[in-house]
Design a protein around this nucleic acid. Structure first.
Lengths: 210, 210, 210, 210
DNA sequence: GATGAATGAGGTTTCATTCAT
DNA sequence: CATGAATGAAACCTCATTCAT
């Protein structure tokens, strides 16, 4: 009798709006991304938009949370790996690959522009923490194995890996001559050099250090 | 009767507004930085603001141009130096120091959020080019001297130094535990390792190369 | 297969919605009483609401018509009474008692706020007319009997009785210290004084009039 | 040098908007009185409206406060009077006269419709209190003089005088046949009868009764 | 030059109402 | 019959910008 609530349809619609939001936010920034433009891109009426997201800001948060969730999911896929250094470099590489979707860097920038909104700042902090939580255990295992430099605390190393990925993302967004495919290997190599640390040139050599 | 235009006074007022704009933009982002808020911070009326800048966007451009000008000025101060690697690391270090003014990272983020405005994109591109133009001759000289890796073209190396600085700036803005004073040395060391390249561990070794 | 329409069930549902509407309208006023809020209160879906009432305004009209109908029903219950003054005072008292349902004054106010809608104005006029039609014959009989002052035309007296009841209702709604139980007797006494008129203290004296 | 701020001009504009608001609110109720309609009536742009009132509700509050202020001013004009009963009846009469501006009853109704807004409820309570504070000392003096009934506490008498005025106002708004000029005398007479109380027919007469 | 009152385009959001299921 | 997702008109309000003083 009652209309069957179809959660799958609901979720699909939600994702459709999120996709449109990602596109428009990346292209026009937060203030340029009017709800009208997002609705047009998503092919929905303005009322429908607010059926799914109470606020324009909430759409941004939803996109961020999706990203955070993906980060968490990555953790599961790494179960069973025994090569900490390889895992860490794979993670750095996968973040570089994320930048291949041209919308990602644009979105990141748009979000940076509204970080003064507390809710956005919180979501970004959560995302940051998820990334670092993903890295930390592997850094610790790498240090225990002697593959990762031990002159820096794990948390600091994690920050620097995120720094490299963030700088890479920004560069891709800024410089048309700086492409993911062209620079990805150098990113991984640079990350490897950083992880191995000074005095361990190449990293693969017999761990003679200093 | 005709008031003599005092250019010094005019320029002082302009800088006063620029300072207020920097503060407010950093704190609230582009859209949060209303002209009213900037005027309040600067202690002027709204009419006065538009005497000095035809548009809110023009204020942003003026701030960016000031930064670009500072970059250009740095070039002059380096005249006569003969240690390319040292110069490059000093530049990276000076960019790190810039991040010590807490308004800088906030402003950079605010501007990133409106990069979709063509005028802003152009100004950022000009700033980027100024930074790279500053780096390029020293990279080339470093390569000629054998102090800088030669397996990458100079332009690419320049991009990566900017990448490191950009990632550093972003990290400082994001993570309260990541401070300029605490991480500056590691930035310089990492830049050195990158510049020296793989296979030249430490970089301080007697320049055996090629 | 065809579901037999059950008029009793239909009417029950209708009354349920009317009750919810009365509650929500009284608490939040006309514009604050969204159809969504009324549906939530009634425990129905928004689609169901519009099965029973084509318009939010129509719900208001239905509530008003219910009140008018009750007024008309009161007339029947008075059949056979022979004491016009007593009847009139009973009516005034019963209106005071209506104010004991705390939703009534709130609803009256909410409706007053949308009297500019012609349909509402018409319904209120009908309600007003019903009240006066109820009073008029008893006023006339009271005048004929000499119990009610004859220096005013019946219609005017009716207006004043309604005025007293209306003022009473408003007062109850406004002033928490003004309660139905505390003030009801004084209302009736004041109505009696008014009905008897000046110079006829007590009202029972030999009616010299005309 | 600086533009002279002209408070008189500011206040004039403010009153102009208040007048327009009174007109439109009376005619269309709160929700029908769109800010656009008020601006059109006032002959100003929408931006100007919000220059003077931060909110549509604040305009309503300003109108109410103006009314409250007028009530307070009335108190001063009564200084020196020595006939409490006369003062009280003058006050009742003056409230009746207020209803002669056809916008007043309409406005009162519009406000009643949004009493669920706490700010409006507070303002109405303040207005109510101002009216009663105006009445109270004269009621007390009237009781001391023996001109006013002493069987009811002064506060209760005040409530009833307000009740009569409120009912009168509502009646004028509702019933086209109920006019201020036609009914004003009867209002004063009814108020007198109420103030004098039962058993004091006519009030000043030698009062032989039953 | 300096001011701030005035402007109005345009943005976000609400909500009564429709209709496919 | 009942539902609630979808709709879009329209409301309130913000804010960059103009201009008379």
């Amino acid at each position: 009798m009652a209309r069957r609530v179809d959660p799958a349809r609901h979720e699909a619609r939600r994702l459709q709006i999120i996709g449109a939001g990602l596109t428009v936010l990346a292209a026009r920034g937060y203030e340029g991304a009017t709800t009208a433009a997002i609705c047009r891109e998503a092919g929905i009426g303005s009322g429908t938009f607010f059926h799914y997201f109470a606020t324009k800001t909430e759409l941004v948060l939803a996109i961020l949370e999706l990203g955070t969730a993906e980060t968490v999911e990555k953790a599961a896929a790494l179960e069973g790996r025994t090569d900490p250094l390889g895992v860490l470099l794979d993670l750095v590489g996968s973040w570089a690959d994320d930048a291949a979707d041209p919308r990602i860097p644009g979105f990141v920038r748009a979000v940076a522009g509204v970080m003064h909104l507390p809710a956005v700042a919180d979501a970004l902090a959560a995302d940051d923490r998820a990334q670092r939580d993903l890295l930390l255990p592997w850094i610790e295992r790498g240090q225990a194995d002697g593959d990762v430099r031990a002159d820096l605390p794990p948390a600091r190393i994690a920050s620097w890996l995120v720094l490299l990925s963030g700088g890479f993302l920004e560069r891709v967004a800024t410089d048309p001559g700086f492409t993911v495919v062209g620079e990805r290997d150098l990113l991984v190599a640079t990350a490897r050099a950083f992880l191995v640390g000074p005095g361990n040139a190449g990293g693969a050599t017999a761990g003679r250090r200093r």
